[in-house]
Design a protein around this nucleic acid. Sequence first.
DNA 1: ACTCGGATTCAACGGACGTTGAGATCGTGG
DNA 2: CCACGATCTCAACGTCCGTTGAATCCGAGT
Lengths: 206, 206
Amino acid sequence: MASTDSPGNGGRRGRRPGDSGTREAILDAARARFSGEGFRGATVRAIAGDAGVDPSLVMHFFGSKQALFVAAMEFPLDPAEIVPRLVGPGVDGLGERLLRFLLGIIDELGEANPMLGLVRSAVTHPDAARMMREFLGEAILDRIAAAIDADRPRLRAELCASQIVGILMARQILALPELAAADRELLVGIYGRTIQRYLTEPLASS
Amino acid sequence: MASTDSPGNGGRRGRRPGDSGTREAILDAARARFSGEGFRGATVRAIAGDAGVDPSLVMHFFGSKQALFVAAMEFPLDPAEIVPRLVGPGVDGLGERLLRFLLGIIDELGEANPMLGLVRSAVTHPDAARMMREFLGEAILDRIAAAIDADRPRLRAELCASQIVGILMARQILALPELAAADRELLVGIYGRTIQRYLTEPLASS
DNA sequence: ACTCGGATTCAACGGACGTTGAGATCGTGG
DNA sequence: CCACGATCTCAACGTCCGTTGAATCCGAGT
């Protein structure tokens, strides 16, 4: 990690001029570390180092590592605005729209992706698993479930979530080679049809 | 975790009679801890405690925490035997067969599931991610890819892997409620059709 | 009967971690 | 121009971790 040590320069104590943006620098470093190494793997000391700052300043700003995690993993997009925009045009082609959007922000956010941080932490840290379950559930799944007109809407939304989390794991974390290299529109087509089926087609097998 | 402390009793030093099964007790405890908390979260001391044994005995048997992890996460079933048995009857209904088998062993293994341990560790620990990628790739995906008669077989196998890992994440780790409670045969039907599509149907969207 | 070597424990090490408390610095409002 | 309070660093704490080294115990081979 490139320790740019832009703020907090010089080893001198005391306040530097202006607003100094140190708080934001710490949040950026925390996002990168938590996303890349999960809650346990990321250390307050490393985050402070990346931000060019003393570890105790992190505590001064955020109180605890846990609180820093919550602040850093806040999702940069508001689901209350995004989900209706995706669902708005109707249920036709919703699968493809959802996937194009998701793969887009995954590629755009790269390694500083709060979803990666949540997944990497949820897997080890029960508190983070609860955070993710609640965020996923209330902010996204229930909204989608409310928008589709079919039996067992919540189960359908969870089916979609299982495939989407799987994409995240396979491409970003396990880095399965052909999947990671595949053309985005190809994946939109393949996975989009799966999601569409989970959302609207009959569930019971023949 | 129920610290049964069956071996190593009494705080007395020296050798206890016979073969003593201590090594196996350590492996069992390691499987449970690694599966439940991942590589970083599981501690040698806790594993030793569960096995009723001094931490240094773990080192004596296995040399290092890393080596213990490798020994404990060895998959209890041999893919070289399982995969052909599943693929054998032909590609028809392969999706359902694969899923029935997978959901079966997931429920059977419960929390002491090496796949869970690998996933929980891969997410944080790059070495474990490599282990899992190689195991998945060589032992399973390539074998499946070799068995199907369609274009881009390896990509198809990775598509299946992405859905299967997603099932593991959603049901066992995130514990999405409706998915965790759903009837097994219902899931076999739903996911089986997805897997079947990834394996045999045309990839390109219309 | 006597050694030999594996099984086992105890005590300790050095390092990393999250967190704390005290103090230094300096822009800003009165 | 002075005191206040926010920003920032330093040094240290207690804890837990993986690992090591030495010592003890005892079954097995000769």
